[in-house]
């Protein structure tokens, strides 16, 4: 996973709530077995059908920070939603509330999700709509979002922050504790099911 320390870029205001993962990337784009190249599916229905959609506006074409309405990423567990955003050039999504699985997936794929109060999201929308070239800095080290004269702190748990700053892979971290996994396995009840084909009763 690519480490995340600090990022400065322009931001796209996505004034929609409950943006579900089917909008971020529709199911037909999930048939691929590779882990890259999902940018063509990113918000594809809105990009095709709505000329005014924010990412169709040239002033937001190069944005790398998405500022969305509440409840971003509801629905499916597809990590492809995070991959599509990353492949589409985004490093950060800001919202007042994320769906759990999307947020969790983002921490595994190196996409930073930042929770800000809705009032701060509204202020950021207003700023980037007034001047789309506004430079926005998201600093994970300092846990703050800043633009113009404004600086807003955000919360992130220490462990997730450390993993993102270092770009660490969870599997490697868990493998340090395999002795404890083995110990747990030795205590599991024998009647728990096995998935191997069952013998006829």
């Amino acid at each position: 996973m690519q480490p995340f320390t600090t990022h400065t870029g322009t931001a796209a205001p996505l004034r929609r709530s409950a943006v579900d993962t089917d909008q971020i990337i529709p199911a037909e784009y999930l048939k691929r077995i590779t882990r890259t190249g999902f940018e063509d599916g990113l918000f594809v229905a809105w990009r095709r059908n709505e000329p005014d959609f924010v990412l169709n506006q040239p002033q937001y074409a190069g944005a790398s920070i998405l500022v969305a309405g509440p409840d971003f990423g509801t629905g499916s567990s597809r990590e492809h939603a995070c991959w599509a955003l990353l492949d589409g050039g985004f490093r950060v999504v800001i919202s007042s509330r994320f769906a759990d699985i999307f947020k969790n997936n983002s921490t595994k794929s190196g996409l930073l999700t930042v929770v800000l109060p809705q009032a701060d999201v509204e202020a950021l929308w207003a700023a980037v709509e007034a001047d789309p070239a506004t430079a926005v800095t998201v600093d994970l080290q300092a846990r703050q979002v800043s633009y113009g004269e404004v600086t807003v702190p955000f919360e992130v748990d220490e462990y997730t922050r450390w993993r993102l700053l270092e770009g660490l892979d969870d599997v490697g971290l868990t493998e340090r504790h395999l002795a404890e996994v083995e110990d747990y396995e030795s205590r599991r009840p024998a009647w728990l099911p096995k998935a191997l084909p069952a013998l006829p009763a």
């Binding site: 990590e79 492809h80 997936n105 595994k108 868990t174 493998e175």
Partner: peptide, 12 residues
Amino acid sequence: IGTSEVEHVLAT
């Protein structure tokens, strides 16, 4: 779970 977690469960 997402695909990174699928890999994590497969491995551990």
